[in-house]
Design a protein around this nucleic acid. Sequence first.
DNA 1: GTAAATACTTAAGCTAGCTTATTTTTTTAT
DNA 2: ATAAAAAAATAAGCTAGCTTAAGTATTTAC
Lengths: 197, 197
Amino acid sequence: MQQGIQLILNNISKIVSLTKEEQDLFVSKLQYIEYKKKEFFLHEGQFSNELNFIIEGCVLVYYTDHSGFSHLIQFAIEDWWVGDIASSTHNKPTQLNIQAIEKTKVLRISKDDLEYVFEAIPKLERFFRILVQKRVANLQQRIISSLSKTATERFIEFREQYGFLENRITQLQIASFLGVTPEFLSMIRRKLNSSKK
Amino acid sequence: MQQGIQLILNNISKIVSLTKEEQDLFVSKLQYIEYKKKEFFLHEGQFSNELNFIIEGCVLVYYTDHSGFSHLIQFAIEDWWVGDIASSTHNKPTQLNIQAIEKTKVLRISKDDLEYVFEAIPKLERFFRILVQKRVANLQQRIISSLSKTATERFIEFREQYGFLENRITQLQIASFLGVTPEFLSMIRRKLNSSKK
DNA sequence: GTAAATACTTAAGCTAGCTTATTTTTTTAT
DNA sequence: ATAAAAAAATAAGCTAGCTTAAGTATTTAC
């Protein structure tokens, strides 16, 4: 856990610098949690009242539609933040599922504590504002790609951006993220491989 | 313009409450600008260093791909904020075009002034954090829809959410927002109309 | 007020991506 | 180590949504 605290403070210090006292206050609000592989952080219909920082592991954020198909909205690994901003901003039950796909260690802060530290340490509110802005940039890029690119182009873009994940998540999950069937992704991969040599 | 200032202060007061002095400081940083129909706020390749609040009018935010096709990322009307968060967060030239499609009046604040007022009035940083969170919720919903719904379902959802815009933007623009061709949208509309009666 | 430009509709043929089904490979649990 | 489960590949037939093209309606600009 001690290493995790170093990691989270380091993550924050890339954007804002906190004094020792501010760090201690923030850290005092963190809860350390471990999830086993396949365990859920959050189920559809629950209220999302926490934000999680991943120390170790990998989680998926997905939406399950009325026909039971899952659609991968986001994934997160160590040194990333994960939570349902939509649910906690609008105080509505989440539509999403958040699930560990490896043994995962997180530091968690509740919504109430987060609001408290924002009040006490405005620099932290700045940090989170910038974090959320980066998320906007990321989501917007994904919309641009979904509107203007073919599945093959989106797969190539995925590899460039998230290639380091290719051994941690399955083809099924990549297909779900790209918005194609696994069968079609398999075809895309075959075509790319044969044209490569 | 005076009315515009009332509108913007009102918009902010729905989320945070400012003292008279704080309001005055914020307002002193605002610039009033008018655009004619078809004029651009921002062209692809430029740097986005402003945030705009629309007092009156309607603007489109779109991406133009390498084949010259436009894809509508966002639209905004009076009482909405518009800018390119991605470009200004990452200090990169924008990929987007922002264009007025009606005579449009805005109040604008530069990125530098915004950072200054965030420092001086932390409540304003909170306001913008929450504004950006709402944008995340909106973009995420759009990704969920694009992954899990057919074009017809997305059009019905568009009408429910943005029906009030149907007389201000064209079918071409709606098609571009939904990610279908105008011809196909025309077919969808015909089917929906014939099944309605 | 009128010509030109733009938006919208319709329809026929086409293709990217889906469905279903089978086989092979890899992972998981005991 | 092995059986069961899950993931991945291949292939044939299908469909939502695209392309092209031509015609009609509406806006725009002078």
